Amino acid sequence: MENMFKCSDVDTILQKHNFQATNIIAILQDIQEVYRYLPKEIFQYLSEKLGMSRAKIYGIATFYENFSLDPKGKFIIKVCDGTACHVRKSIPILNKIREELKLSEDKTTTDDLLFSVETVSCLGACGLAPAITVNDQVHGAMTTDKVVELLNSLKEEK
């Protein structure tokens, strides 16, 4: 784990949660906030530190949809494909994002780990359809032109 991740970062998180196995969900959330995903090496380390089996920790991490075992980009783009957004053409927006970032349904994160693209069933922003979020910030009334502008501004921001 020392090669890619700092044990001291994880130890700080564990201290915050008093090394309590009952706080495993909050611990995993904090680790994911630091690394943007749950590295596979983390399971053995947490198992040793918390006295929990790796299988149990892994089971929790894979049960909850919010946890990711794959690296995520700095900018996580979620494209809504709920009814309101779908009817207002969210799929062409999704396709434009994938085209611009050279991503696909199978490849969801850029090689430079700058962008990750996901589809979601609903963002709860139906009045702004079609909507996307970038790191949970809502962008409504999107068009393919607007999404290209947004991507370009995010690339400059990096």
Score class of each variant (00 low, 15 high):
M1C: 11
E2I: 11
N3A: 02
D9W: 05
V10K: 00
D11W: 02
T12Q: 11
L14Y: 07
L14D: 10
Q15M: 14
Q15L: 15
H17E: 09
N18W: 02
F19T: 10
Q20P: 00
A21I: 05
A21Y: 03
I25K: 04
I25M: 00
I27P: 04
Q29A: 05
D30L: 10
I31G: 03
Y37K: 00
L38T: 02
E41A: 09
I42T: 15
I42S: 13
F43M: 05
Y45R: 03
S47L: 05
S47Q: 10
G51F: 06
S53N: 11
K56R: 11
G59R: 13
I60P: 00
F63L: 14
N66G: 08
F67N: 01
S68D: 10
L69I: 06
D70A: 11
P71E: 08
K74Q: 11
F75G: 04
K78Y: 12
G82T: 04
S90E: 01
S90V: 00
S90I: 00
I91V: 12
P92F: 03
P92R: 02
P92S: 00
I93V: 15
L94E: 13
L94M: 12
R98K: 15
E100P: 00
K102Y: 06
K102E: 12
K102M: 03
K102D: 10
S104V: 06
E105W: 09
T110D: 11
L113G: 02
S116C: 09
V117L: 08
E118G: 01
S121Y: 01
S121L: 04
G124S: 01
C126Q: 07
L128C: 10
A129Y: 01
A131K: 10
I132N: 09
N135E: 09
D136Q: 14
V138M: 05
H139S: 04
G140C: 13
A141H: 14
T143E: 09
T144N: 01
K146G: 13
K146A: 15
L150P: 11
N152Y: 00
N152L: 08
S153Y: 07
S153G: 06
L154S: 09
E157G: 01
K158Y: 07
